[in-house]
Design a protein around this nucleic acid. Structure first.
Length: 491
RNA sequence: CGGGGUGUAGCGCAGUCCGGUUAGCGCACCUGGUUUGGGACCAGGGGGUCGCAGGUUCGAAUCCUGCCACCCCGACCA
């Protein structure tokens, strides 16, 4: 392990890339744009899955699994949907290889062309709605509330670990309802769940909003989203929830008999978050020393590092360490006791800081004498020495304190980097010199949105749900506007 | 698909201009020892089709030709 991470202030994206690799979260794989998620990174994903999955189940959803391959024809059933995804689909055309003529490996067997080519799912609306057609006959079959954990493939041109990869892991919820109101309520409910997860588990403050037409999910009537702000002043879309109206029901002919005996198309929603959240987690909290993880998602919450004077002392130190560890585990805290003698304490300190372990306990000969331990927290680097007996309670409380401190820090950053502007000069100035979210009036036209994007690289992240109604004029065109919308440069 | 760059040990690089011992350095790795309160030190050791294929030459990592791969910057996106 070589020392020193690039500094955020020198090169933010180099810092991010290096951090992901050095902290053992993920690495590139031979196929461009696809990544290996390493055990430490995957542990974070598992914690995210566990937290979200519980929230889904608590709101009546169940998991299922739909296939990776989708008949090509399905994709074209919903016009907007095809258009949105056609450019980035991986296509399976053959089902067999054979030895090459020159004997040096394998080639695609031209005889084995598929009659109908298959698409590797970029998202599953089409297969799922095609299936729902058979599952739904009556209002008694509704609502249908299903989620799946899966991988999807979108053939991206430019990729970055976690933030944008050709293959990524996510969950996608797909629900069907008897009424428009119910489907809309579901869409909002899931948005709320994502926001709660981001804020409570990831310690990531987010802004809930609705997308403009140009940013909307292909095939949706409305796309809601949560947007987070990263430390470099760029926005990250952290989750989306779509009200699909009857678009997919119509495309796949999913009708149900209502209570009055009539036949109606069902109303749909879909919603998802992906491994991109890990990228957001990293970029929101971490510092020049490495990851800073919120205790709720940290694979290891507490690490105990012994400081030895001679090998014989390890026994006593280990005894003390194990006692503390077991008390912490009783409180539901995950602990690692690192008794390797192949690395010095200083090396370990740096290592666990790089990996974002929220709390470190050091125990040395001095502590053994005094019956104390040293407790250091990752978020503030503060150290305190406490009596052994008090340590478990202190640490238990520290978990909550660190969790909320990280959240508050991110919230303060966002608040100090959210700027309301009324002129286009100001708008450009803020984007250029300060970054962050910019709140400004917008005339509601795609033309204006597009021009602003071309001129400033900033997009409308969302129309915030809590935006106040106020008369104003568009920052670009001067035309009348009823509310301010959220602009930023984004990932 | 345009513009730029790079391929030499697991990683990061030097050597290439100007061909000439056995291809070198740092990190990592292995062995032994001394160490351990903020990234230890000493000694020894292993590891290479120099991206691939041709060519020039007594001799090629180095020169020539062709190919391949990857990275960065621009047009798309959770």
């Amino acid at each position: 392990m070589s020392k020193g991470l690039p500094k955020r202030s020198d090169d933010y994206s180099a810092w991010y890339n290096e951090l992901v690799k050095r902290a053992d979260l993920a690495e590139n794989s031979p196929v461009r744009g696809s990544m290996v998620i390493k055990p430490y990174g995957y542990s974070i994903w598992e914690k995210m899955q566990a937290g979200l999955d519980k929230m889904f189940k608590d709101t009546g959803h169940t998991n299922a699994y739909f296939p990776l391959f989708i008949p090509k024809s399905y994709l074209s059933r919903e016009a907007d949907h095809v258009e949105g995804f056609a450019k980035e689909c991986a296509v399976v055309t053959h089902y067999r290889l054979k030895k090459s003529e020159d004997g040096g490996g394998v080639v695609v067997d031209p005889e084995a062309r598929l009659e109908e080519e298959l698409i590797v799912r970029p998202t599953s609306e089409t297969v799922i709605w095609n299936t729902y057609k058979n599952w739904i006959q009556s209002y008694r079959d509704l609502p249908l509330l299903i989620n799946q954990w899966a991988n999807v493939v979108r053939w991206e041109m430019r990729t970055r670990l976690f933030l944008r990869t050709a293959e990524f892991l996510w969950q996608e919820g797909h629900t069907a309802h008897a009424t428009k109101a119910e489907a809309e309520a579901e869409t909002i409910q899931m948005l709320e769940i994502y926001a709660e997860f981001a804020e409570k588990h990831m310690a990531l403050p987010v802004i809930k909003g609705v997308k403009t037409e140009s940013e909307r999910f292909a095939g949706a009537v409305d796309t809601y989203c949560i947007e987070a702000l990263m430390q470099d002043g760029k926005a990250l879309q952290a989750g989306t929830s779509h009200f699909l109206g009857q678009n997919f029901a119509k495309a796949f002919d999913v009708k149900f008999a209502n209570q009055e005996g009539g036949l109606d198309y069902v109303w749909g929603t879909s919603w998802g978050v992906s491994t991109r959240l890990i990228g957001g987690l990293i970029m929101a909290h971490s510092d020049d020393n490495g990851l800073v993880l919120p205790p709720k998602l940290a694979p290891i919450q507490v690490v105990i590092v012994p400081i030895m004077k001679g090998k014989d002392q390890l026994v006593q130190l280990a005894d003390q360490a194990n006692k503390i560890a077991s008390k912490l585990r009783d409180k539901g805290i995950s602990v690692k006791f690192d008794d390797r003698d192949t690395h010095k304490p200083g090396w370990k300190f740096a290592e666990y800081e790089l990996k974002g372990v929220p709390v470190r306990i050091a125990i040395g000969p001095r502590d053994l004498e005094n019956g104390t331990v040293e407790i250091a927290r990752r978020d503030t680097f503060e150290k305190q020495t406490v009596q052994v007996d008090e340590a478990p309670e202190v640490i238990f409380e520290l978990m909550d304190e660190i969790q909320s401190n990280i959240y508050n820090k991110a919230l303060n950053f966002r608040e100090s980097h959210t700027t309301e502007v009324s002129t286009y000069d100001e708008f450009q100035d803020v984007l250029e010199n300060k970054g962050g979210f910019v709140l400004a009036h917008w005339d509601g036209s795609s033309e204006t949105e597009e021009r602003i994007k071309e001129e400033t690289k900033a997009t409308i992240r969302s129309i915030p749900l809590n935006a106040e109604e106020e008369a104003g004029s568009c920052v670009y065109s001067g035309k009348p506007s009823k509310k301010k919308v959220l602009f930023a440069r984004a990932y």
